[in-house]
């Protein structure tokens, strides 16, 4: 039993060493840390309040006063971008974690118990997979939002978005976790422990979880950018966040229609989305290579 623990630890350790060698992934990692820092420090680093309207400056291009110009209400784009990072990252990260928790629990349950439980649980996943995610996203978002569970309208929009996105995105995680659990279950030491009568919960906690950690971290990293994308898609549909708060998706959706006249409205949030998503994807790639012993040293 002790041996398996060491394997687990050294696996993570080796992965870390491999990751450190990967320059692209490291740069991406720092970029992500930077974006998170910007999001956290928003109130202190943004040059103007994000909702202050400068009516003499409506739709002005980049200038010394407003580096990234102003929007259609004369609000500073840079400040809105910085505050937007908060929401976008929150949506990306929180959703990823919620779907991680649901997905891991579900997948582990299905994989561990197998048999009847497994096929019932997988049937549900089959159904969810066959509903066009776009309609599920819209309907769930609208139903949650109209349900009046939360009084504060801003919070309501945000939570309903988080819930809708999580509900759509946990399925792929559950599938992967189940596959991994099935694999680990067959390994000799797990079988040995099992035959020795170790308790179910302990088995899952001690042997399964550490072993599936790698693939899960990788998936998580890929999940965040696709959440950010899904959020921008909802903004495109007009189901985005409450004003005056706005995410990068909301800003980008505000901007693309007037690309030829006011390019700054589209370019700034566009670049922000692009850089953040690229960084997450590259980091995810690096992590995957690092966690996959077969792939290590080949990139």
């Amino acid at each position: 039993m002790g041996a398996s623990k060491t394997t687990g630890r050294s696996l993570q350790h080796e992965a870390w060493i491999a990751l450190r060698k990967n320059k692209v992934a490291m740069v991406s990692g720092f970029l992500i840390i930077f974006v998170c820092a910007v999001a956290l420090l928003a109130p202190w680093i943004s040059p103007y309040p994000f909702d202050e309207q400068y009516l003499d400056q409506v739709l002005a291009g980049p200038s010394e006063r407003h580096w990234f110009g102003t929007d259609s209400l004369g609000r500073d784009m840079l400040s809105r971008l910085i505050y937007g990072a908060r929401i976008s990252m929150a949506v990306g990260v929180i959703t990823a974690f919620v779907s991680l928790i649901i997905g891991t629990a579900y997948g582990a349950l299905a994989g561990w118990f197998g048999g009847w439980t497994d096929s019932a649980l997988m049937r549900i996943i089959d159904i969810l997979d066959s509903i066009p995610s776009i309609i599920l996203l819209i309907l769930v978002k609208l139903v949650f939002e109209a349900a009046d569970i939360i009084g504060n309208p801003e919070l309501k929009a945000l939570t309903s978005m988080l819930l809708a996105l999580s509900l759509v995105s946990w399925v792929s995680l559950a599938r992967v976790v189940r596959g991994q659990v099935l694999q680990v279950k067959q390994m000799s030491y797990v079988e040995a422990a099992r035959s020795m009568g170790a308790s179910q919960l302990r088995m899952v906690a001690q042997h399964i979880l550490p072993n599936i950690l790698g693939p899960v971290i990788v998936l998580l990293t890929f999940q965040i950018p696709s959440n950010i994308l899904a959020e921008s898609f909802l903004s495109f549909l007009g189901l985005g966040l409450q004003p005056p708060y706005s995410s990068w998706g909301v800003l980008a959706n505000d901007g693309w229609r007037s690309m030829s006249s006011y390019p700054h409205l589209m370019i700034t949030p566009g670049v922000a989305i692009f850089v953040a998503m690229l960084a997450f994807n590259l980091l995810g790639d690096g992590l995957r290579d690092a966690f996959d012993p077969q792939m290590r040293g080949r990139a």
Partner: peptide
């Protein structure tokens, strides 16, 4: 005051 938007039919 708190501004609050809702989908058209809602």
């Amino acid at each position: 005051v708190q501004v609050q938007n809702e989908e058209w039919k809602v």
